[in-house]
């Protein structure tokens, strides 16, 4: 009888071994990633009868409320852009961010039955929820197009830079989502913290108003909020450059986003080995 020598086995399981083959595993499980995203999208638009209508209504209503409160009542400046468009351009990245944050922070818990029964790189789960929010984002973008047509407002060449800012907001959402989802497995009361964060975030981010109303000396400090850079970027790209980017703040935001993203992956990988034991 022939026994295999070490090299003839094609898989070895031992402590820390999965770490070495992390990216290779991720590639092997890419199909599962597509299937899970596909499932989440299907379920999202099936479960609520309103489905797509809901993802249209939510930003639209928020936009109307903000336009009335900040534009009409408080008479905040919008740099010559119709206030609804001005708000909606910021709603796009904000909805994407808050949606993926909420969904991904709970994603590991809601999928615990799969995690405790089947192996796959766990990072697929929060990643697939971000994809669902991306679909919402596309629907919302279409609404923005309609609003722009209504106001006969046309963007210029800067529109071409939108994918870059979208990527930036994706990295922000995913990075934060990684942190929160893995913390949520360990400390279950994080699920109370996330809605609070999202609610507060809507008011401390320049969604309903322009970040230019923040006094000059505080602007750099204000840019510590990573969404400031993303939202300013979106407005810059969509609104014909009426909005100037505060570059030092933007770079600070971007650097912080990268830090959150890289540390998020690091923390997620560090904790994911024990997910099945803790969940």
């Amino acid at each position: 009888m022939k026994n295999l020598s070490e090299s003839e086995y094609d898989q070895v399981i031992e402590t820390g071994h999965a770490e070495l083959h992390y990216w290779k595993d991720l590639w092997l499980y890419r199909e599962l990633f597509f299937f899970l995203s596909w499932r989440d999208i299907l379920v999202r638009y099936k479960q609520t009868t309103l489905g797509i209508a809901w993802s249209v209504l939510r930003p639209l209503l928020t936009m109307i409320v903000f336009t009335i409160i900040f534009g009409k009542l408080a008479r905040l400046p919008s740099e010559g852009v119709p206030y609804p468009i001005f708000v909606y351009a910021a709603m796009l990245p904000w909805q994407f961010f808050s949606g993926s944050l909420t969904e991904s922070s709970n994603s590991l818990i809601t999928n615990s039955h799969i995690i405790s029964k089947i192996f796959f790189p766990r990072i697929i789960i929060p990643a697939s929820t971000v994809i669902v929010c991306l679909v919402d984002f596309l629907i919302s973008s279409f609404i923005l197009c309609l609003i722009m047509v209504w106001y006969k407002y046309s963007p210029d060449w800067r529109l071409l830079t939108v994918p870059f800012f979208l990527l930036l907001s994706l990295v922000t959402s995913f990075g934060t989502g990684l942190w929160l989802s893995s913390l949520n497995v360990k400390y279950r009361d994080f699920r109370y913290i996330v809605p609070f964060l999202v609610q507060i975030g809507l008011y401390i981010s320049p969604v309903g108003f322009s970040s230019s109303i923040v006094p000059e000396k505080w602007r750099l400090l204000y840019s510590i909020n990573p969404m400031v850079g993303v939202i300013d970027g979106f407005r810059w790209a969509l609104l014909r450059g009426n909005i100037q980017i505060y570059w030092s703040g933007f770079l600070l935001s971007t650097a912080l986003v990268m830090l959150i993203f890289v540390s998020g992956i690091w923390y997620f990988r560090k904790t994911e080995r024990t997910f099945a034991d803790n969940i």
Binding site: E6, Y9, V12, I13, E14, T15, A18, K117
Partner: peptide
């Protein structure tokens, strides 16, 4: 451990072939 859901604390398993688990 065999289906890689959790990692062993000590020791190792060598496997040849595709493994599917039906827990």
């Amino acid at each position: 451990i065999l289906s890689r859901i959790t990692e062993p604390t000590t020791g190792r398993v060598s496997i040849k072939g595709r493994i599917a688990s039906l827990l």
